[in-house]
């Protein structure tokens, strides 16, 4: 087990969906007075999911909309804790779930590098020492001192990607962000991911694009309704999935 990077044991993520509109205290009070309880239903976005991924592997995750892919990545990235089961990770994780989470659109690109860096758990000094490299990779050095509300969405994504991937992580988790940016930046970001993969990072990719999955991974997990439908080699799974 020494070389396991990610391991899930019977992970269930349960969302509680209230049947009524918004939950307000008023609503609860009225219901309480009427001696009626608030009704809701439980929905398992992930249902007893177990798998493990070896260090250095690149694994793809596919599945229909609502299958639980993003939920899976969130539970691995610690954004949500599993309702039941256990998530175990070895190494520093860089989540690329939504680029530029925590960006403040009133602030400049430079200020946002620090802010987003801090959101990702880096301290100020560390970011300061890597600032030039981040700006250069993002390719928007001309606009770095303009507020990012003036940026195009691609520019924002570039900046987010540059901050999140500046230091090689042990585990890289990617949720459908391979298609951001223009062709040049797509190439550049794919190259960086490939380089990290070659240097031993474990990579988990969610994508709806079969060719992107084929390009990156050998091993694919197919999620359906919160369950693992199948896991296997990329060609097999994609064949089954598309038919």
């Amino acid at each position: 087990m020494e070389n396991t990077a990610i391991q899930l044991n019977d992970v269930t993520v349960r969302f509680r969906i209230p049947h009524e509109k918004i939950p307000t205290l008023q609503e609860y009070a009225i219901r309480w007075l009427k001696r009626r309880s608030v009704s809701f239903s439980d929905f398992n976005a992930l249902n007893n999911v177990s798998f493990s991924i070896k260090q250095g592997a690149t694994v793809g995750i596919i599945g229909a909309n609502g299958a639980g892919k993003s939920t899976l990545l969130k539970v691995i990235s610690r954004v949500i804790r599993p309702t039941y089961g256990r998530v175990f990770l070895r190494g520093r994780i860089a989540p690329l779930l939504e680029l530029g989470a925590g960006f403040d659109y009133e602030m400049t690109g430079r200020e946002n590098i620090f802010l987003n860096g801090a959101v990702l758990g880096f301290n100020r000094k560390d970011i300061a020492s890597r600032l030039d490299r981040i700006v250069e990779f993002s390719g928007i050095s001309e606009f770095i001192d303009a507020p990012i509300r003036t940026y195009s969405s691609g520019m924002v994504a570039r900046l987010g990607f540059a901050v999140a991937t500046d230091v090689q992580p042990d585990i890289l988790v990617i949720d459908e962000i391979l298609s951001v940016g223009d062709v040049e930046f797509q190439k550049k970001s794919a190259q960086r991911i490939l380089q990290y993969s070659n240097n031993g990072s474990t990579i988990l990719v969610v994508s709806h694009n079969p060719s992107a999955i084929k390009q990156l991974c050998n091993d694919v997990i197919w999620l359906q309704h919160g369950l693992i439908k199948m896991r296997g080699s990329v060609d097999d799974i994609i064949n089954y999935y598309s038919s």
Partner: peptide, 27 residues
Amino acid sequence: MLEYDSAKRPPPAIDEFFQLIRYRDLI
């Protein structure tokens, strides 16, 4: 090496405190 184990966690009241110290620059 850094590890995260969702099953092994200090009590939330303590865990949150140390996490905040780690993320003080963000604050």
